[in-house]
Amino acid sequence: MTKEEMKEHIAQHLPGAVFDETGEWLNVQVEADAWRSFAQWLRNEVLQMDYLFCLTCIDWPPAAAAKTQTAAGGGALTMVYHFTSTTFRQPLVVKVKLDRNNPEIETVSAIWRTAEFHEREVYDLFGVRFLHHPDLRRLVLTDDFEGHPLRKDFEDPVNMIRL
């Protein structure tokens, strides 16, 4: 399956999707409300995206967001999902923009089991709350840790060294 075919399928299923083809792989931006059903469709329908190989988040605080077109406005947390299908081998990147002050998104751990750990990591380091996650706790940091270190405005006067 080529990039164009994939784009057509997605555009047909989700007319509101925004595409970006500047990178190596096809990028799709979807709304947080539409994410859960879109994920289900990605996995089970024509694209058969059964392998979620990378799940991460990017922080765009208001200052950084103002400089870039990627996330204009009052700052955002962008969830980034990298998929590929073991049948078609054509990677797809899905991005979901979240409100930075109240980041909430539906979990996909029931669809791709690997997401359970990855989402816990993102919750730990970025503070994104995954709704209906089976076991949403901090993963690498202690339970009483304050703040989310991978956010750009995180400050730790003791342990952080600035170069």
């Binding site: 500047t22 990178g23 190596e24 990378c54 990017i58 950084a64 870039t68």
Partner: peptide, 23 residues
């Protein structure tokens, strides 16, 4: 340059990916 780059290789343990977002 501004953009996103992803590379992957096969380590002894499996697929290792590096995802760089550049400004």
């Amino acid at each position: 340059p501004k953009g996103e780059f992803y590379s992957r290789v096969e380590t002894a343990r499996g697929e290792f990916g590096v995802y760089i977002v550049s400004e």
